[in-house]
């Protein structure tokens, strides 16, 4: 047999996009050499947003797991770092280890929530986040609402601290984008989409639905935790109300829905838009939140598939699509 069918490789335009992405990443790594402290700080926040959007999209857009409680892992990541640092661990090591500890915590929790139906799962995740926050607030170190600062971070030279945290954030973004790309192109990608579309039918074509959902859930938990530790490191003060705030979920929802749910690049575009809106209108206080709401409504009404939907409408194809195309090859 000299003709056979294969899955098409990455297209030429997508390769160019990936190369451009690589150049942007290199530029971001070099930025602290010439960027001001303010720019570095702002971009660190943008990186946190991108990670969160990518993780939420992995959950909701590819596995159909709509969560409004990912702040459980953002807050928990921050809390673990605080605890580790207080026990004498060097802060940057603690930031790395925080994500791993959240993995250990999320694993048993996955048994509780993943058997639930979609709507129950969404609510259960919120309840879980609130429960974990309440427990954390009992810790004398946190002192309820008061919170606590990562004092040992203050001891480090501010420029070194800022640059290190920023570089960690860029690495985390690169890793989450590369990892989720590999994941979605691979077996887990197809299986999770099958679960999203019809869980029962997925199990009857042999997909171990719980195993697949657990993988996605754990990856997303760790991703959110890492974003949380980076955010804490740049904000320095850990306050349970903000670290475990429902705001995080609202931001993630906004970024992914406006960017394009279930597309690879959509969440990144959504994070960029969200960041830009925050930069321009952030000073208006509560009005800024209302403005975010208006933008979300406008998208829901006029571009329900988000920015990515608009791009597909214009060009006819999705850049960096995770579609597996069947092609015939000779020889």
């Amino acid at each position: 047999m000299n003709r056979h069918h294969v899955i098409a490789g990455i297209s030429a335009p997508d390769r160019r996009l990936m190369a451009a992405g690589g150049l942007i990443a290199l530029g971001l790594f070099a930025l602290p050499l010439f960027g001001s402290a303010l720019v570095v700080d702002k971009l660190t926040l943008l990186m946190v947003y991108i990670i969160l959007a990518v993780m939420w999209n992995l959950l909701a857009g590819y596995a159909g797991l709509v969560s409004v409680g990912q702040q459980a892992f953002i807050g928990l990541g921050g809390y673990f770092v605080l605890r580790l640092v207080e026990s004498g661990m060097p802060p940057f090591l603690a930031i790395g280890l925080g994500g791993f500890l959240v993995l250990l915590a999320a694993w048993p929790l996955s048994w509780l929530v993943l058997r639930l139906k979609p709507a129950e799962f969404a609510v259960a995740m919120w309840v879980l986040a609130e429960t974990i926050r309440s427990i954390v607030m009992f810790d004398p170190l946190v002192q309820g609402e008061t919170g606590r600062s990562l004092v040992s971070l203050n001891a480090i030279d501010p420029d070194v601290r800022r640059t290190t945290i920023y570089l960690m954030a860029v690495v985390a973004v690169v890793v989450s984008l590369v990892l989720s790309h590999a994941l979605l192109r691979g077996r887990l990608g197809g299986e999770s989409q099958a679960i999203r579309d019809d869980e029962e039918a997925a199990s009857s074509v042999g997909v171990s639905t719980l195993r697949v959902k657990r993988w996605i859930f754990l990856i997303s938990a760790v991703g959110c935790a890492i974003a949380g530790t980076i955010w804490l490191a740049s904000a320095i003060t850990f306050q349970p109300r903000s670290a475990f705030g429902i705001n995080w979920s609202i931001f993630m929802l906004f970024m992914v829905l406006v960017g394009g749910l279930g597309s690879y690049l959509g969440p990144v575009l959504g994070a960029l838009l969200f960041f830009a809106l925050q930069e321009v209108f952030g000073d208006f206080g509560a009005w800024y939140l209302a403005g975010i709401g208006v933008v979300a409504i406008l998208f829901a009404l006029f571009a329900p598939r988000g920015i990515m939907g608009l791009i597909i409408g214009k060009t006819g194809q999705e850049p960096l699509s995770m579609r597996k195309l069947l092609i015939m090859r000779e020889g």
Partner: peptide, 14 residues
């Protein structure tokens, strides 16, 4: 009950 977010080939591939 096709997986409606996927192509026909992807349905069979999974």
């Amino acid at each position: 009950r096709p997986f409606i977010g996927m192509t026909v080939f992807e349905n069979v591939l999974v």
